[in-house]
């Protein structure tokens, strides 16, 4: 079970991220989650959206370079020890995390969501599920 994340190339200079959000706003695209990774010259914006196809089309038409990456999305209670529980599973399975980020919100209160980029999302998903954690797929993202 996985979610498709959109990664977009941006130059690291004033106004670039705003250009991207402008395009998303114009096309009425709601972001569920956003994370930034950067060097001094360029950056990668990582987005989770409801309609991946629409968002990538819109970005392409606006001249952005983007790619899709499968990531694991996990729902956890927004309380102390929530993240710890997930990481324990990864440690036990020797799964390395390339990067991760969190987001809150959605209809359910007191619920947090974690996005993980790992080498092998299938093994990671299976391990998390057998540990009793709730995973999200693309449809769940739309329903949040």
């Amino acid at each position: 079970m996985s979610v498709r994340q959109i990664s977009v190339f941006l130059e690291n200079k004033p106004g670039q991220l705003n250009q991207l959000t402008e395009v998303l706003a114009e096309n009425n695209i709601d972001m569920r989650a956003l994370s930034l990774a950067e060097t001094s010259e360029f950056g990668i914006v990582r987005l989770i959206v409801e309609d991946v196809y629409e968002a990538t089309q819109v970005l392409k038409d606006a001249g952005f370079v983007s790619s899709l990456t499968k990531v694991v999305a996990v729902a956890i209670p927004d309380e102390a020890g929530g993240l710890n529980k997930i990481l324990k599973v990864f440690t036990a399975m020797h799964i390395n995390i390339e990067y991760m980020y969190a987001f809150l919100g959605g209809k359910e209160v007191k619920q947090a969501y974690m996005i993980f980029r790992v080498d092998d999302y299938k093994t990671a998903s299976a391990a998390l599920r057998s540990a009793g954690l709730k995973l999200l797929d693309q449809e769940d993202i739309a329903d949040l």
């Binding site: 990664s7 190339f9 983007s66 790619s67």
Partner: peptide, 10 residues
């Protein structure tokens, strides 16, 4: 940057 040379991996 081109679509071919872009990846999610910094």
């Amino acid at each position: 940057m081109t679509p071919e040379m872009f990846t999610d991996n910094l």
